[in-house]
């Protein structure tokens, strides 16, 4: 759209605008930049290599990635949502500092996160011994993958959820109180429904981060292989041609939740145009 509609909205005439043109060109560049790698991924994925990967790997990495990420999301929703809500309710108190602390895991390289998790939850650590009592191990296990995914995705979920809770008008909560609705019921009847579009975005961001988690996961759990580790192993052992089909599967598996979130947000917009 290099031409901007002139002031009369019913008019079909458009006038040329340099500013509008520049913005449009920049937007096209950004969209192209984001799309081109996807085009390359799709166009360079060969059917024979895909079949070979299927023969070699089977559905195991796919199943592991989806199940570990699903468990990680359940953990995040159950633990991260209360944390985000508590932080949003405590503007001057202790929990506000948690918001600043959450930025640190965001800044840490995933590889370092993996090393720290092994140090904390590995079989030779205190917590590792404690986990062993429950027949869990923080290294090379389903639990270890979930642990790494939760840690990598938690800041994304909690910070986005916090923004969603902060966006709920405090006056609406007060109004609910004045109507005799106590805090617990107000949370489920007012706060949660109003924050849910933001929480859905938080969940899809966390999902995308967790299912593609590689750096921390490869340190704490080289085995069993999830999809991101399988991509790495295929690249190392057989080359790019065999790594790309696995990457395409990873993208296709990751896509439905974020896509559903976008559609759901549009459908449930509180203030439609």
């Amino acid at each position: 759209m290099l031409f901007r509609r002139i002031s009369n909205p019913n008019s079909r005439k458009r006038e040329f605008s340099y500013g509008h043109t520049l913005v449009t060109l920049l937007a096209v560049c950004a969209a192209g930049f984001l799309l081109l790698p996807v085009v390359v991924l799709v166009s360079h994925t060969g059917r024979p290599e895909l079949a070979a990967d299927w023969r070699d790997w089977g559905a195991a990495p796919l199943v592991l990635s989806v199940t570990t990420t699903a468990v990680a999301m359940v953990v995040l929703v159950l633990a991260g949502t209360p944390l985000a809500w508590r932080v949003s309710q405590d503007p001057g108190g202790f929990f506000r500092y948690v918001e600043y602390i959450l930025v640190i895991p965001l800044l840490m390289p995933p590889l370092v996160i993996g090393l720290l998790l092994v140090y904390l939850y590995g079989p030779y650590s205190f917590l590792g011994h404690l986990l062993a009592v429950f027949r869990l191990t923080g290294s090379n296990s389903f639990f270890a993958v979930v642990l790494a995914e939760v840690y990598e995705a938690a800041p994304y979920y909690v910070l986005a959820a916090l923004t969603a809770f902060d966006g709920v008008d405090r006056a609406l909560v007060h109004t609910s109180y004045s109507l005799g609705c106590p805090p617990g019921r107000t949370f489920f009847r007012v706060t949660l429904p109003l924050a849910s579009p933001g929480l859905a975005v938080a969940l899809s961001m966390a999902w995308a981060r967790a299912i593609g988690a590689f750096g921390a996961v490869i340190v704490v759990a080289y085995y069993p292989h999830g999809l991101p580790v399988a991509v790495w192993v295929a690249l190392q052992e057989r080359g790019l041609g065999y790594a790309l089909p696995l990457a395409l599967v990873l993208v296709l598996v990751s896509l439905p939740l974020p896509l559903w979130t976008v559609l759901w947000r549009k459908k449930h917009a509180l203030y439609p145009d």
């Binding site: 007060h174 109180y177 004045s178």
Partner: peptide, 9 residues
């Protein structure tokens, strides 16, 4: 607490 006062606002 506000929810026990029964004051309309």
């Amino acid at each position: 607490p506000a929810w026990r006062r029964r004051l309309g606002y």
